[in-house]
Simulated scan of single mutants.
Amino acid sequence: MLTDAMGISRKSMYAAFGNKEELFLKVLQRYERGPGAYARESVHAPTAREVARSYLEGTVCAGTQPGRPTGCLGVRAALAVGVTGQAVQGILTSWRAKSQADLRERFQKAADDGDLPAGADADLIARYLTTIADGVSVQATAGASPAALQRVVDAALLHWPPS
């Protein structure tokens, strides 16, 4: 389908992009600069709570854009790739780990600066948000409306640690 849409042969596609895994990595990188940019941009919000809100609302927005596939490319691909796709699973695992690490680092800074309570577990907070975001993506893929998903974001933030 891809070669037909591009009007090129398989040989030309591989000559231009390398193997399937390299092509998928390029697609994921482009997604990260487009609809998935919220993940990298959210960590620049001024407070930890605003980082969390930006990250989760970005998930809702990216996953429910009219005229685009629903959900998150990384989550959908991780659910679709089987045993034969170990290389792609590795790419996706690293990609998700990077997002979680960026959040963890930002929340650790927030804890160090007093924006989160002393003793806040930056790793747990980052894991909590990425888990909620992954669930939002799955729900978007299943057809949940932006309004319904925003209610999930609002509920998740009710559990935000007081500063």
Results as ranks from 00 to 15, higher is better:
115 D>N: 07
75 V>R: 02
93 T>L: 09
152 V>L: 15
18 G>V: 04
26 K>Q: 14
51 V>M: 09
99 S>R: 14
146 P>S: 15
4 D>S: 10
88 V>Y: 04
64 T>L: 09
24 F>Y: 12
35 P>V: 12
95 W>Q: 07
150 Q>S: 14
30 R>W: 07
160 W>A: 03
119 G>K: 02
16 A>R: 12
3 T>P: 08
119 G>M: 01
147 A>Y: 08
11 K>E: 05
54 S>E: 06
10 R>T: 07
136 V>E: 10
91 I>D: 03
86 Q>P: 05
23 L>A: 15
101 A>I: 06
105 E>R: 14
96 R>K: 14
24 F>P: 00
98 K>N: 14
143 G>M: 03
9 S>D: 05
116 L>K: 09
66 P>G: 05
58 G>F: 03
111 A>D: 02
16 A>Y: 04
67 G>V: 09
134 D>L: 15
65 Q>A: 10
89 Q>R: 12
50 E>M: 07
8 I>C: 11
12 S>T: 14
148 A>Q: 15
97 A>P: 06
92 L>E: 01
14 Y>T: 10
12 S>P: 05
116 L>R: 10
131 T>H: 10
29 Q>K: 09
147 A>G: 08
77 A>I: 02
82 G>C: 03
134 D>P: 09
9 S>R: 06
110 A>G: 04
82 G>F: 02
72 C>M: 03
120 A>W: 12
75 V>P: 01
15 A>K: 05
88 V>N: 06
22 E>A: 11
96 R>A: 13
153 V>C: 10
64 T>Y: 09
65 Q>I: 12
143 G>W: 07
12 S>F: 02
98 K>G: 13
112 D>T: 11
104 R>I: 00
30 R>Y: 09
23 L>F: 15
58 G>R: 08
110 A>R: 04
149 L>Q: 11
74 G>W: 03
53 R>M: 11
69 P>Q: 12
99 S>H: 14
76 R>Y: 07
98 K>F: 11
125 I>H: 04
110 A>C: 04
63 G>N: 08
77 A>N: 01
40 R>T: 02
35 P>I: 10
65 Q>S: 05
114 G>W: 02
12 S>D: 11
61 C>W: 14
34 G>H: 10
89 Q>F: 05
64 T>M: 12
131 T>D: 07
150 Q>G: 09
155 A>P: 15
154 D>A: 12
31 Y>C: 03
74 G>N: 06
159 H>A: 11
96 R>C: 07
61 C>E: 15
108 Q>T: 00
73 L>G: 00
81 V>D: 01
126 A>D: 01
36 G>C: 01
103 L>P: 02
116 L>V: 06
124 L>D: 12
20 K>Y: 13
70 T>A: 15
19 N>T: 05
101 A>Y: 03
119 G>E: 01
44 H>I: 00
100 Q>G: 13
141 T>Q: 05
101 A>K: 06
31 Y>W: 08
55 Y>A: 11
158 L>S: 08
99 S>V: 03
157 L>V: 12
73 L>W: 00
133 A>Y: 03
26 K>F: 03
112 D>P: 05
73 L>H: 01
2 L>G: 11
